[in-house]
């Protein structure tokens, strides 16, 4: 018996999910951040964020098709974290690092928060 592992399968699946998002195929929720709107797949949001996991496992909220986030959330920070969810790449612009970290705290993305902390400490002169 043999087993073949396609080592790039996970990243290929993620790339296709991101293609589905950009073509708005089977996206099932709109995330409202201040006046900006982001279409996404609930399953991808739940897989990446503790906050969305809690929201969409709540039987009263799992059928919502629009979620407004706290107005303190920065839309640019959210956009960068949503891109990270679908690409595994976190773009850290100097001017946005705090907005990204605060949004990751809000979204309960602890591993991203820890990584941002380490990045800030390592880049402190």
């Amino acid at each position: 018996d043999s087993c073949i592992q396609f080592t790039r399968h996970a990243s290929d699946v993620l790339l296709n999910l991101n293609r589905l998002r950009s073509r708005d195929i089977l996206t099932d929720v709109t995330i409202l951040v201040n006046r900006q709107q982001f279409r996404a797949h609930k399953t991808v949001l739940m897989a990446c964020s503790g906050l969305f996991y809690t929201i969409f496992t709540d039987s009263l909220k799992c059928n919502l098709n629009a979620i407004s986030l706290d107005p303190k959330v920065d839309p640019e920070g959210f956009a960068i974290l949503l891109e990270f969810m679908y690409t595994s790449r976190l773009t850290l612009k100097e001017s946005l690092i705090m907005a990204i970290m605060n949004t990751a705290i809000y979204l309960q993305m602890d591993h991203v928060v820890d990584t941002c902390h380490r990045f800030i400490k390592s880049s402190d002169p």
Binding site: S49, G50, V112
Partner: peptide, 21 residues
């Protein structure tokens, strides 16, 4: 992502969804 300094993070990136609640 050309021209961007890319740091490879080998650690866990996201939470783990429990097998059951």
């Amino acid at each position: 992502y050309e021209g961007v300094n890319t740091i490879k993070e080998m650690g866990r990136s996201i939470h783990e969804i429990p097998r059951q609640e």
